[in-house]
């Protein structure tokens, strides 16, 4: 039995060793904002925050989150920083198919939480583990910089 916290709520789930965190969240617990992309830790679509740190849930075994705090975008629905990020993404047209968006929002959230005014280079580094095949990244990078300006104006 794996006991962990998911978006602030306690979860107990009977997960075998061979089940990934991604499959436990998405297939078993129905958290479909966590996307299944490359399944190799390369594309970042399955990114979740574990104790606040972005990690790819497809290469983590479910029992390894015992006692840890797992957070998806669903857990940040009312979070002021995440709200600014979502607004900025919508206004700047940073979403096309949307498949990469939850993962990128979590990577961007972790960046801005720890670094209120990142440089463009720091934004690029923060999302280098998130692949977007639609937008060409420009609108995404602008949105993250835009959100940073909204939360911490000059």
């Amino acid at each position: 039995m794996v006991n962990f916290e998911l978006n602030g709520a306690h979860v107990s789930f009977e997960a075998p060793a061979t089940m990934t965190l991604l499959d436990m969240l998405r297939v078993e617990l129905g958290v479909t904002s966590v996307k299944k992309g490359c399944e190799q830790g390369e594309c970042g679509a399955c990114t979740v925050l574990i104790d606040g740190y972005p990690m790819t849930s497809c290469i983590i075994l479910a029992p390894q989150v015992e006692g840890r705090h797992v957070c998806t975008i669903d857990g940040l629905a009312e979070n002021p920083l995440m709200k600014e990020l979502r607004e900025a993404f919508m206004e700047n047209g940073a979403v096309q198919c949307g498949f990469c968006t939850p993962g990128i929002l979590l990577s961007a959230y972790a960046l801005l939480r720890d670094n209120k005014r990142p440089s463009e280079e720091e934004v690029k580094t923060a999302i280098e583990g998130n692949i977007c095949r639609c937008t060409g990244y420009v609108a995404i990078i602008e949105s993250i910089l835009d959100a940073a300006e909204r939360i911490a104006p000059d």
Binding site: G41, M55, I60, S107, T125, A126, E128, G129, N130
Partner: peptide
């Protein structure tokens, strides 16, 4: 790696 890989 990436941020996600470095964290893990």
């Amino acid at each position: 790696g990436s941020v996600q890989i470095r964290n893990r």
